[in-house]
Design a protein around this nucleic acid. Sequence first.
DNA 1: TGTCTATGTCCAATATATCGTACATATGAT
DNA 2: ATCATATGTACGATATATTGGACATAGACA
Lengths: 261, 261
Amino acid sequence: MDAVQDEAAGKRARGLDRAFEILDFLRHKRQALKPNEIAAQIGAPRSSVYELVNLLLRNGILEFTGGEGRVYLGRKLYFLGAAYENHFDFTRECEATLEHLADETRETAQFCMLDGNKYTVVRMREGARPFRISTDIGQSVPIPWTASGRLLVAHLSDQEILNFIPPEDFRLPSSEWLEPQTFIAEVRHAEREGFFTFNSIVDSFTHCFAVPVRDDEGHIAGTLCLVTPRDDGLANRDRYLACLKKAAADLNQTPTRQKRA
Amino acid sequence: MDAVQDEAAGKRARGLDRAFEILDFLRHKRQALKPNEIAAQIGAPRSSVYELVNLLLRNGILEFTGGEGRVYLGRKLYFLGAAYENHFDFTRECEATLEHLADETRETAQFCMLDGNKYTVVRMREGARPFRISTDIGQSVPIPWTASGRLLVAHLSDQEILNFIPPEDFRLPSSEWLEPQTFIAEVRHAEREGFFTFNSIVDSFTHCFAVPVRDDEGHIAGTLCLVTPRDDGLANRDRYLACLKKAAADLNQTPTRQKRA
DNA sequence: TGTCTATGTCCAATATATCGTACATATGAT
DNA sequence: ATCATATGTACGATATATTGGACATAGACA
């Protein structure tokens, strides 16, 4: 019930899909698990999971860790991820930009992207405040819950947006229902304005700012965000937006471009 | 003829294994390739490669990039790799240690690990010299070609070492043959001494220093290395070794330990 | 024009991967 | 002692994934 793997009932799952379901599951659990536990929690046949886990262990994609036969993501994944990061060399500039933003505003600055059909924080820099606001990086969050979400799906048509976002993700953490048409209207508005800001819907004390970061072809590849206390956000709105836009413009110079190509 | 996937002839390859063969191949090529090219270069059936590439694209493991239908490693791999890095939180301390080492010695400092049955540079910090010595990170190199290699296989028995290292890797870049027994003797010597140094066999002007970094269970998880011009290396041998050992001791305090567990 | 290579799609045959089930063991509760 | 649960292994049946080859298209070249 986590990923997109159901389709019709009574069908066999493909090994590759299940394998990556296991990897994603471990990623979100953020801890080593026994094959048995994995099978139970993702609702897959135990024998299949044992088979796949052994295959992945042999390939270095999973590793034994934590004892008792528990497994977690393996070193090979680190190497592959590093190769991706090296190819699309956004990290270095991104880090510098976030640091600059956080210094300038004293607020928490984030770089966010889509992970499949969810939103995720890729990099974060906490602001210089006595009480700092931070989030877990790498966690998947429903797109409609976030300011960035309004920008990250802007390249899709209305219908594509509805197909792309799982319907249950329009149910907000407050258990309120966000009408998809309302969301789409906000997407179009954000697209035209070039930014989106609102009082966060995942809590009651933060205000969020998001501006788009575009890739070579002009598509929105990610967003730069500020997460601030509500009063600060409202008080400094214009200045913060200006900072964000300038930072994004810098990033757009040399964004997700390949180093060698 | 690249990975370990042949076994007997006439057998079908398992999708999962081939998939990771494709990923590793792209990683080492360090560029986007067409499915057709991938198939030709790894010697796999074209139809299989197209099928697998499409599956991997759907999962975000591969991405279209570079145009003309070329594919490269995808964002999902970055997320998975980041989760690994987060779990085994060696990166931050490692980076600081390397910086310190490079400052102290003005030489190039590296952190190296095994990638399957090859050696690879995980992190590197270039020294402060007019002519700096550097290497590609993430590239696979035969274990016997490197100083670190003597330490990274020290936990294996003689026979296990022979089984682990592909025989052709004892053929040095100079086309000389390194007798496996000689290599093993060097491994045992390095193990006892707690370091290994030599004039590099991959070029004619560098001297290499390597000391082990151990994980919680005392196994060698990686190495810290210095790569220096030969004369500097010989002249400062004792000091450099002392720096390395001190740095490794620092890393061993909080090495590849899980943050939450 | 005809021929070659490079590229991608489609399809049927069969080798095999997935999955249900049974089995083995340990641990803890009743 | 008996039962229930958690964990890992073994194996056969069958749904299907892998594969070779046919087919289509486009460009290069002579």
